[in-house]
Amino acid sequence: MKTVFIIFMALGISVSMPIKQEEFIIEATYIGLEEGVYTFVDDDELEYEFSDIDIKASKKYDLDSGKFIGKKFEVTYWMDTETDENDEKYDVYIIVSLDLIK
């Protein structure tokens, strides 16, 4: 009976804990918005394309306005996997936080 109780307790704890999404951080310069994709480039000239932006980040810096083109940011983002109409998986990058680097 003790074993059953311990198993149920362990399951209850694991189910109630939210899964934390892994965050990635880069420093990169904002290049612009084209066809709904926000593009940044880092100092090594690697390009990062983000298909979505969290509402808090978009309110902090209105990247749609164009006034931040050429500005350097610390970009915090999540990577998610979605499935297209052909059941093929692809990665989606979502900006969750932005901080302007002066």
Results as ranks from 00 to 15, higher is better:
55 I>Y: 12
34 E>H: 05
71 K>V: 07
12 G>P: 06
53 I>E: 01
23 E>A: 02
94 I>S: 12
31 I>E: 07
86 N>T: 08
52 D>Q: 11
93 Y>K: 15
11 L>W: 04
17 M>K: 08
63 L>D: 00
88 E>F: 12
68 F>S: 02
88 E>Y: 12
33 L>R: 10
35 E>P: 02
76 T>Y: 00
92 V>Q: 11
19 I>T: 08
90 Y>P: 02
44 D>A: 12
11 L>T: 06
55 I>W: 10
11 L>F: 09
4 V>S: 08
50 F>H: 03
1 M>T: 11
32 G>W: 03
18 P>W: 07
44 D>Y: 09
77 Y>T: 01
72 K>L: 09
57 A>D: 04
29 T>I: 14
88 E>H: 12
24 F>V: 13
8 F>V: 03
80 D>I: 13
39 T>Q: 06
18 P>D: 08
48 Y>W: 12
92 V>I: 14
23 E>S: 04
69 I>R: 09
1 M>E: 12
62 D>K: 14
80 D>H: 13
27 E>H: 06
34 E>W: 01
71 K>Q: 12
54 D>P: 01
86 N>W: 09
56 K>W: 05
58 S>Q: 09
18 P>R: 08
93 Y>D: 13
101 I>Y: 00
44 D>N: 13
21 Q>A: 13
15 V>H: 10
39 T>H: 03
94 I>V: 14
5 F>N: 05
65 S>K: 01
3 T>A: 15
17 M>G: 02
99 D>C: 11
44 D>R: 11
72 K>C: 08
78 W>G: 14
97 S>E: 03
99 D>T: 15
63 L>V: 01
